[in-house]
Amino acid sequence: MTDLEFRDFVDTYRVKALSMARRMLKNDEDARDAVQESFVRAFRNMHKFRGDASIGTWLYRIVYTTCLNILRSQHRMPLHESLNENESPVWIEPEIFDTIDQATIEDILQEEMSAMPTLYAVVMDLFYVQDCSYEQIVSITGMSLGTVKTRLNRGRLMLRDAIRSRLEPTPSFAQGGNQ
């Protein structure tokens, strides 16, 4: 890869990689360092990229590993709790977004994503922000498919409950069709 191609690569992925690192590290300064270190690693190891996965997936795996290394060095490694992988899928009713103004919803989501446990937040970020499929998330994080689905379900549940808690209780939301 030439310097020019690498420049394009950085331009394409730097914002998304930073979002992912922020979700994992919960700290802007650490996240910037992690992303810069990840790009340096990607640059040095570009010859090892075989094209088995997309280059984005490969980069996200480097970012994920780099963030875990930082968390380990800060003694903040996330705990891998055992999960029930047979939980029902959770989804958010579209009407819920019409009941509060956009700025408030964005504030709620930002707060909840920042407060969400690391391994849930990173899976949510990979799925909703980086547009990764379940299989890609498995490849990036090394989690099992069932764990990825469960973390996504619980992440959605946390966000849904946070939005609902700001609403007046109404019968239609109280009787949601899912969990």
């Binding site: 979002s19 958010i92 977004f97 964005e106 994503m113 949510m124 922000v129």
Partner: peptide, 14 residues
């Protein structure tokens, strides 16, 4: 609902 969540999360994260 999922599309709207997708849009909002992308907006606040990026």
């Amino acid at each position: 609902g999922d599309r709207r969540l997708h849009k909002y999360l992308a907006s606040v994260s990026l």
